[in-house]
Design a protein around this nucleic acid. Sequence first.
DNA 1: TTTTATAGTTCCATTTTAGAACTGTATGGC
DNA 2: GCCATACAGTTCTAAAATGGAACTATAAAA
Lengths: 144, 144
Amino acid sequence: MIGDRWSLLILRDCFLRVRRFEEFQSRLGVTRHVLADRLKKLVRFGVLRRSPYQESPTRYEYILTQKGLDLYPVVMAIVHWGDTHMVDERGRPMLHEHKSCGKVFDPVLVCSECGEPIVAKEVHVHAGPGAAEGMAKELAARAK
Amino acid sequence: MIGDRWSLLILRDCFLRVRRFEEFQSRLGVTRHVLADRLKKLVRFGVLRRSPYQESPTRYEYILTQKGLDLYPVVMAIVHWGDTHMVDERGRPMLHEHKSCGKVFDPVLVCSECGEPIVAKEVHVHAGPGAAEGMAKELAARAK
DNA sequence: TTTTATAGTTCCATTTTAGAACTGTATGGC
DNA sequence: GCCATACAGTTCTAAAATGGAACTATAAAA
């Protein structure tokens, strides 16, 4: 769903309160053709909804659904990784303020059970109830 | 860097301890051509390093660098979103156990300052020191 | 009457990806 | 010695996705 050049950038802009076709297009520089297609796809996946904001002519804007809002950790994790590893000497392009505590913050991924930050080496993966036998087979089936 | 169909899937497999060309290829079903290219790119970005594991013929495996390990929150956030919104009736394909506390957990994104879970509506964004004037301009410059 | 705003669609050239076969070094079986 | 297998790629062509630019449609404003 996000495996293409633009979907994640579109979603990032959604979280920055961008809602309209022209604004996505001019901010990102994506071609109109591809943008129209990606917005359609994101609506089809239930991540955005297309909502009319005026009549005659009816025009629509794109708004995150709850399913879309739940992608916030994904976008924030990418942004924070970029802030850590990809900024130039000028520093971060944006700062995030947590309204509820009033401070500029970094996002931290923690364990739901013990509250400690999660690092890859401290995690062990095992099969769950929906385990697939083989991933390649699975992907092939899904593509149909 | 991750704006294509395979990079994130390759990285997910890296976190599942996959290291070798053949194993990436057979697990993901990506074409060998594209896989070779993506691995090269990830090495160039400093996310993976190419490390010899035998002589004559010398063969290499791909291992996450620290910069790559730092992408764990990104991958985990996507996996967790999938677990929440995309699983079928069988349930989750995988469970994650936190070695340090011994429990099966979910990843939660919290505020570094107050420790509370972060939701999009509670975050206010403002310009940081490296703020760009216009995003489209910025992307165009970066592409050169 | 012409211009502007907005949200698209259409067309063609370029780039990327898929699919399959091929290359090169070495090991192990017979 | 000869053939099959393992591994990590490279090469080739066809199909699909993307880029770039122009065009459509509705209506308000100048």
